[in-house]
Write a protein that binds this DNA or RNA. Structure first.
Lengths: 203, 203, 203, 203
DNA sequence: TATGAATGAGTTTTCATTCAT
DNA sequence: GATGAATGAAAACTCATTCAT
């Protein structure tokens, strides 16, 4: 129980390197969300991460390599929270309304949302980016499917269509509302929520 | 008959200018979708439009100005078709399934989709971009609301929630499915469609 | 006799461009000879040519492209003089001794010599560089062959071997002496010249 | 048997260091010939030599120092073989034709040839490089002079000019042919050889 | 003694913009 | 009105060298 990777006071060279790497990745992910994939510059990354120019070239192959790695790491981390919430939620409705609440509470301004959108957009030009994202999305839909199934068993949701179909619909609906909210903050979320409640209940 | 606005032999200078302007805008919109907002270069635009370099600076204020104008014009044009379809559709289900059919038939590869996503993403950084897009989206939801209302009157859709709420849900759902499809072409659209059909019918 | 390409006082834009291009090529060729193929920098070229940075990228594809073009143009120009001399010489001996005289008189320090060596060396890595050089060399040997043939007819040179063989020997000998002189300025050119005189005379 | 200077189990630290040094020098010489003096990088050297980065800075003063040492060591080694051949040859003709045979058999592709040319070229910019090369060349010409003298005594070569002059001519001729062959692999070596045979014989 | 992570000066390249014609 | 040559600021990238361990 006394294990310590740092083994004492001074950080080893390798540990320092890992920290630098992580700082660069974090700064890059943040900048992608803030200024957009194509507007990110190495200079800005270095400044944000607080590391010298050369450190980036030393740790990463090039700009493309860096953006890719940062985007993947960043989005996976961003998706971890919603996934955990979905797995922890008691039923679909709780999960749905929770997410809507997060939207309404300013979740849209979360940097992760911007990063996510940038990455999705870029992934249609770079297959190596799409794969990990798609995997995570499937995981999310799987968790939702589980919720739906439970609700169906309890009669809270119409059991007719396969649970996976309903899960896909709920997941897509949430992301679609996010998209519409970005464009139009005045969007009537309450009305949409009420409609969903009714529809899920089965009229 | 020969004194028409310019249908004679040589195009007037003004007409030529308008044509050049339009060619530049079209080329720009296409390139935004293809390579991404930040990767578009003036030279590439000129080459694609088949106009000389200088023509761009001559007709537009600068790069930002050009991209903005092209994005707005391009997205409005791209959204015109779905809007027309929504207005022409007989009921929600027809419209919904029609769109899904378009998705399945390769609609995702349509350059307009890419342009649209780029513009939405960019609009969160540029309010002047958001306004026209939001307006068009509201128009689309309004048309959908009309469809929903008609369906409710005929009992094809549960009348409980306000029509506008259901319309918002349907619109968001479509865009959300689009997003998920971009990431995961294997997405089970059929299952989702079946679930929607059941839900809308009211269980 | 009053023809003027410049057509008056101000140089046209195109003429100015051609002048800039030529200045860049000249500066590049000079620098290749001075500092070596791989040590030439775009910055140094721009400074030497007296043109701004961007002018180089504007006129040439990239560094490789520029060096290649400059090397070819420079070496062809450098080879033009010896070729003319060979064509104008009365006999082989006159040509041979003339070249040796040029060597002794400081010809080795001529920038063209350095450029030539750099280009020959580089040409073994870049076939597109070799072709034009080889062609010019063949032209030079052809001119020499003509001289040898004339000498053979007059009995000044042994007629046994084909003239082209003797011409190749003479050409190679000159370049070989150049090479050895570069390494060892104390080389006994006189002794070598005397030997050649005797050998050519046929003992 | 086990107390030899280090032929036992573990190589002493000093021996290891010497081996590393030699590996670095060998890799450097090879790279100079392959990519050109100015294109050699420390990282490439380390990779080729199979030693860590730091080892180079540890063993050598800097890049210039390393290249110089490697070039000198490499060229001296490369010149050792021809020198031995010249000293072992029975007469000039045997030596000459032997070298021509080596040329024709692909000797041009030998890495040493490239290294030699690079070093000669560089030596005109770095006197400390020229000295050892010139010394070796003089040694080579001295061996040739000995051969020529022997031939002259046997009447196989015209005795008129001093042997050293003829030796210089033969040496330069060989290097000149090498140069021309690099540019033009189609060069008629046979014709040149025939001419040399006739000329040396004295008509 | 030996290593390799880190640095930053220097290099090439791209590109929006300007402006003379 | 229209063009495209020219510019220089800024970007990405390379790489010899340093230095803590």
């Amino acid at each position: 129980m006394t294990k310590a990777t740092g083994q004492g006071t001074r950080p080893s060279s390798a540990e320092q390197g890992a920290a630098t790497r992580k700082a660069i990745l974090t700064a890059t992910a943040a900048l992608i969300g803030e200024v957009g994939w194509g507007q990110v510059t190495m200079r800005a990354i270095a400044a944000r991460a607080g590391v010298p120019h050369g450190a980036i070239s030393y740790h990463f192959q090039g700009k493309d390599d860096l953006l890719r790695q940062a985007a993947i790491a960043g989005t996976l981390q961003a998706l971890a929270e919603p996934l955990a919430m979905a797995q922890a939620a008691g039923d679909v409705r709780e999960m749905f309304e929770g997410t809507l609440g997060w939207f309404a509470g300013g979740g849209l301004e979360d940097p992760s949302v911007a990063l996510l959108l940038e990455t999705v957009r870029q992934s249609s030009r770079d297959p190596s980016l799409r794969e990990p994202l798609a995997t995570e999305m499937r995981r999310f839909r799987a968790a939702l499917t589980e919720l739906v199934r439970r609700d169906q068993e309890q009669g809270a949701i119409t059991a007719d269509p396969p649970a996976s179909g309903t899960a896909t619909v709920v997941a897509a609906l949430l992301d679609g509302l996010l998209l519409h909210l970005i464009l139009d903050p005045e969007l009537d979320l309450q009305g949409a929520a009420e409609a969903v409640r009714t529809l899920l209940r089965g009229g």
